[in-house]
Simulated scan of single mutants.
Amino acid sequence: MSIAVKHQVDPVVRSNLNFKIDEIPKFWFANDPFKTRFFDALSLTFPEGERFFIESVRLFRDQIQDEDLQQKVKDFIRQEAQHGIAHDRMNQQMIAQGMPVEKFTQMLRERFQGVLKNQSAEYCIALTAASEHLTALMAECFFGERETMQEVHPYVRALLAWHSIEEMEHRDVAFDVMKDIAKVDKKTRKKALVIASTMMLIFNSYRTNEMLKVDGFSKLQRAKLFAKGLPWFLGRNGKLSKMKSQYLDWFKPEFHPSQHPIIAQYDIWIEKLAETGDPIQAGEAFWAYGR
C-alpha cells in the first residue's frame, strides 16, 4: 500500500437531524430478531463509547499546536457528541420494549471510566483510534453493496448512513493525535485493536443474547438464532469478514486511515442532504447508490 495515497474529507458537524426513530418497528431488520438485536447491541455501545472517545482525545488537546488538527479535534468532539445523542434516542426505544438498557449502560460506563482511571493516556487514545478504525469501516461494510441494508427499515438505514458518513470524515483525527501528539508505540497500537475488536464481539454477543432472552426466546432458540445469524456477520462470506483486508491494514507499519478510499457515494449523501435537509432522503440515496 502506498503511503502517498490520501483520501480525506473534513469533518462537518450536523445537528438536529430527525430520523423518526420512535416510528420504527420492534424487529426493524427484515423482521429478524438476531440481526435486529445484534445491531441494537451495537447502538447501546455508542453513547458511552463516544463519551470515552471524547475524553481520550481531550487528554491531549492542550498539547496540539497544529491549527488544522485543533479544528479537526473540535469537530470530532462535536460529531461524536451528536452520535451519542442519536443513539440515546435509539436506546430509548429499547427501554420501551423492556430491554435492560440501564444495566448495559452502567456496565459500559464503569468499564470505560475504569480504563480512563487505571490506564495511561497513551493507551486510552490508542484504544480510541483503534475503535475509530472499526467504525470507519462501517460505510463500506454496510453500504458498499445495496443488498446488505436492503431489508433494514429506512429510518434506521438513514441513521446508520449518517453515522457512517461522519465516521469516515473524522477517521484520521484520533489516529493523528495518537501518532503525532501522544506518540504511541506500535506495540500498544496493535494491542489496542486486538482488545477493541475482541471486547466489541464478546460484549455485543452478550447483549444480543440478553435482549433475545427478554424477547422470550429460550436458550435453545437463542442458540439457533446465533448459529443462523452470526455467519451473516462473521462467516466466510460474512459482511464483516469481507473487510478483513482493510481491517488488517492497521497492523502495517506505515498505515494511515486516509489510505482507504472514501466510499463512492459519499457526495450523493452530501448533495441530497443539502438539497432536501432530510437525512432520511439522504440515507435512501446513499443506500440506493451501492453496488
Rank of each mutant, 00 (worst) to 15 (best):
P11W: 00
F19C: 10
I24T: 13
K26P: 08
A30Y: 06
P33K: 03
K35M: 13
K35D: 08
F38K: 02
F38P: 04
A41W: 02
L44C: 08
P47A: 03
E48Y: 02
R51Q: 11
S56M: 01
R61A: 07
K74S: 10
F76C: 00
I77S: 01
I77A: 00
Q79R: 05
A81P: 06
N91K: 09
M94A: 13
P100W: 05
Q106F: 06
R109W: 06
L116K: 01
E122Y: 00
C124G: 01
A130T: 02
T135I: 09
R146T: 14
Q150T: 11
E151L: 15
V152M: 15
Y155T: 11
W162H: 12
I165K: 00
E166S: 07
M168F: 03
E169A: 13
K190Q: 12
K191N: 10
M200H: 11
S205A: 09
Y206S: 11
T208K: 05
L212F: 06
Q221Y: 01
Q221M: 03
G235L: 01
L240M: 15
K244G: 10
S245T: 14
Q246K: 14
Q246E: 15
L248D: 12
W250M: 04
S258H: 05
Q259P: 05
E271F: 04
T276C: 13
G277R: 07
D278R: 03
D278C: 10
W287I: 09
G290R: 03
